[in-house]
Design a protein around this nucleic acid. Structure first.
Lengths: 199, 199
DNA sequence: CCTATTACGCAACATGAGTTTCGTATTACT
DNA sequence: AGTAATACGAAACTCATGTTGCGTAATAGG
């Protein structure tokens, strides 16, 4: 079952990803130089390109490691569950945003990854797959709350989650503001309670 | 009052922006080559760099021209006004998204601009300024509706607009889906009416 | 008219991403 | 043991961005 030729040195992947992560954390996305990673890792540039076709792909691999697996919890209280889930997503975003020391700047690494997704089909697909997984989890959570009568029967679950997740991304990417638990709570309250005067 | 030295050839700006727009529309963001723009425009590369410090800045200048000035209309019906405004924003996003012919792909030009904003402080500031202007308009619109009793008194206007605009951006950038009037209506309905079962 | 100032074009250059070529090393299969 | 297949390393290469230096053109002010 093992492939024919010489097997890949698996230690290389480990070492390269660690060094690349350090470079991004230290100098930001732009400071991630293929030549420098290769030199510090003690491998040839061709060895890197055999694993990651572009610098963007390497960066995505680095960030993917930092992302927790965002498991969802269903306590039966939809408000608390949504806030928890948003906070998990926000934590991942903040971890990217602050990588590279450009605290107050703009979107930071998160923004560059959106650019990478726009440049490369496959990275875009990856991002969309991750979104789809999140979306499925969230929609199921919302649907359960709807069935037990916590939420309106004629709810638009997709629109609801787009609003919540979208506002998080919007704030981080466009406005560059931080997102914390307090903001997540504001979002959930606003979305759940609506804005019309109650008749 | 005129500056001391030789004045800039203003025709150059016009010509370059037109050519750059054509290149982006034809081959996408990556297909925008400084050398090629310079050649087609019949100017030296240094002349381009005197006006736009990087390729990203040139691209931003091109796209900025395509953006309508998003004036807001206040008819007194907050639901219709919000849908209209979202549709205007979405139209701008779609115009960027489809530039370059990569219809179904990912975020397209819009995503690359987020990357540009992440790479360059000043572009990020520009984007945030535009956001701030939009935000101010929308918040004023919402506030007027609140004061005339159309919306709840304890409304969180900022959260409301973040949700609406955020969902639009989220959908275009991350999921790559199109945004049309129908989607804008779903968003506004969901946000205004809320998700809780009405007590 | 003369000078300081700025714009323009041209060519050379520096840098980093990504590719290509080739010789060598490591593995599976026969 | 021999062979095909794959990985690795090293060096040279291509290409586009962005920079630098210099000669020349255009403008305002003295």
């Amino acid at each position: 079952m093992a492939p024919r030729g010489r097997p890949r040195d698996t230690q290389v992947d480990e070492r390269v990803l660690r060094i690349a992560a350090a470079l991004i954390a230290e100098r930001g996305y732009t400071g991630l130089s293929i030549d420098e990673v290769a030199e510090q890792a003690g491998v040839a540039k061709t060895t890197l390109y055999r694993r990651w076709p572009t610098r963007d792909h390497l960066a995505v691999a680095v960030v993917a490691r930092l992302q927790a697996d965002d498991e969802i919890t269903d306590t039966g209280d939809i408000r608390a569950d949504l806030v928890d889930y948003l906070e998990k997503i926000a934590a991942g975003l903040n971890r990217m945003r602050t990588a590279g020391g450009r605290e107050g700047a703009s979107a930071g690494v998160a923004g560059e990854l959106v650019g990478a997704a726009a440049r490369h089909e496959d990275i875009g697909r990856l991002a969309r797959d991750q979104y789809a997984r999140r979306n499925a989890l969230a929609l199921a959570l919302i649907e359960r709350a709807r069935l037990r009568g916590e939420l309106r029967a004629d709810l638009d679950a997709e629109a609801l989650f787009d609003q919540l997740a979208g506002a998080l991304y919007y704030r981080v990417m466009i406005t560059g503001a931080a997102v914390d638990r307090a903001y997540a709570e504001r979002l959930v309250s606003s979305a759940l309670e609506g804005s019309l005067t109650c008749p």
